[in-house]
């Protein structure tokens, strides 16, 4: 008996061998950390998935060495992974374009929602290699109990999904137009 297969086709830029670590990901998968104190004055906030807001965030952080970005957006959807992927890549593009000698590194934070879906949000945070989960002191022990049940996924783990490719291409094209077309 033979398993039915078909060729794997992806039009993603990863297909052209732009490895994740050249696009702002860690070279090796890292686990997320929980933080209870976040200095809101020292963090840049993304509040929606509009290309205008993403472009504004990138412009605002252009001269910051290693900016902290809080993603105050819905987490359990494809846009979340696609936007983090696009921001990381555009960061690297901006550095290459501006010939920045040392690569800047953005740190991403999410805040868990209180609708009972926090565990699912942690999984999406892992998929997008988010650095920090902002939570309350009371929730840390429970989250630490849950984390061993969610093994750290591979880097850029959603690569290959046609849905992700389509959304990444959408953000890359529209945000870079707003950033570079003047």
């Amino acid at each position: 008996m033979k398993i039915k297969t078909k060729p794997f086709i992806s039009e993603d830029f990863s297909q052209a061998s732009f490895a994740p670590y050249t696009r702002g990901y860690n070279a090796i998968p890292k686990s997320i950390s929980f933080e209870t104190n976040i200095d809101l004055d020292a963090i840049y906030i993304l509040r929606s998935y509009t290309t205008e807001e993403i472009a504004a965030l990138l412009k605002e952080t252009a001269s910051i060495n290693n900016p902290n970005i809080l993603l105050a957006v819905p987490i359990t959807e494809i846009n979340f992974i696609a936007v983090v992927r696009s921001i990381r890549t555009l960061f690297a593009v901006m550095d290459a374009k501006n010939e920045v000698p040392t690569k800047r590194e953005a740190r991403f934070t999410i805040q868990l929602s209180e609708n009972g879906l926090a565990t699912q949000e942690i999984y999406f945070a892992q998929l997008a290699q988010i650095d920090t989960v902002w939570c309350t002191n009371e929730s840390v022990p429970k989250l630490k109990l849950i984390l061993p049940h969610l093994p750290t996924p591979p880097i850029d783990a959603f690569y290959g999904s046609l849905l992700l490719t389509e959304r990444t291409n959408h953000f890359m094209k529209n945000v870079s137009q707003k950033l570079f077309d003047n």
Binding site: F8, S10, E77, I78, G116, Q120, P154, G160, S161, L162
Partner: peptide, 20 residues
């Protein structure tokens, strides 16, 4: 919890290389 998840836009993992 189940109906709440159902109303989210959970993406299909179809085509994800690691899964394939």
């Amino acid at each position: 919890l189940l109906t709440n998840t159902s109303s989210q836009k959970i993406p299909s993992h179809d085509g994800v290389l690691a899964v394939e």
